[in-house]
Amino acid sequence: MAPSFYDPSVSTVCVMDASSHLGFNLVKRLLQRGCTVHAAVQDHGEEQFRRLSADSDKLKVFRSDPFDYHSIIDALKGCSGLFYNFEAPRDQPDYDEYMADVEVRAAHNVLEACAQTETIDKVVFTSSATAVVWREDRKSLDLDLDERHWSDVNLCRKFKLWHGMSKTVAEKTAWALAMDRGVNMVSINAGLLMDDPDLSIKTPYLRGAAEMYEDGVLVTVDLDFLVDAHIWVFEDISSYGRYLCFNRVINTHPDALTLARKLTPSAPPMPPSEEGERFIEQRISNKKLNKLMVDIQS
Rank of each mutant, 00 (worst) to 15 (best):
M1H: 11
M1S: 15
M1D: 12
P3S: 14
F5Y: 14
T12P: 01
M16G: 03
L22R: 05
L22K: 08
G23L: 03
F24D: 00
N25T: 02
L26W: 05
K28H: 10
K28W: 02
Q32G: 04
Q32E: 15
R33W: 04
G34L: 01
A40Y: 11
V41T: 13
E47D: 15
L59C: 10
D68S: 14
D68G: 10
D74C: 12
K77Q: 15
K77L: 12
K77T: 15
S80P: 00
S80V: 10
G81S: 08
L82T: 10
F83N: 04
E87W: 06
A88N: 14
P89A: 11
R90I: 05
R90C: 01
P93M: 07
M99F: 12
A100F: 08
A100P: 00
E103T: 07
R105I: 00
V110F: 08
V110D: 05
Q116W: 00
Q116G: 05
T126S: 13
S128I: 11
W134S: 04
R135E: 12
K139Y: 06
L141H: 06
L145M: 09
H149M: 12
H149F: 15
W150N: 08
S151I: 07
N154Y: 01
L155V: 09
C156T: 05
L161S: 03
W162E: 03
W162F: 15
T173G: 00
A176Q: 15
L177H: 01
R181C: 10
V183Y: 04
V186G: 11
V186R: 06
I188D: 02
G191I: 02
L192K: 00
L193C: 09
P197M: 06
I201L: 11
P204M: 10
Y205F: 15
Y205P: 00
L206A: 06
G208E: 11
A209E: 03
M212I: 00
G216Q: 04
L218V: 08
T220K: 04
V221I: 15
V221R: 08
L223H: 01
H230L: 08
I231M: 10
V233R: 05
F234N: 03
I237N: 04
S239N: 09
Y243K: 02
Y243D: 07
R248A: 15
T252F: 05
L257W: 00
K262I: 07
S266W: 14
M270K: 13
G276H: 13
I280D: 05
Q282D: 00
I284S: 10
N286I: 06
K287L: 12
N290C: 14
N290D: 13
K291S: 14
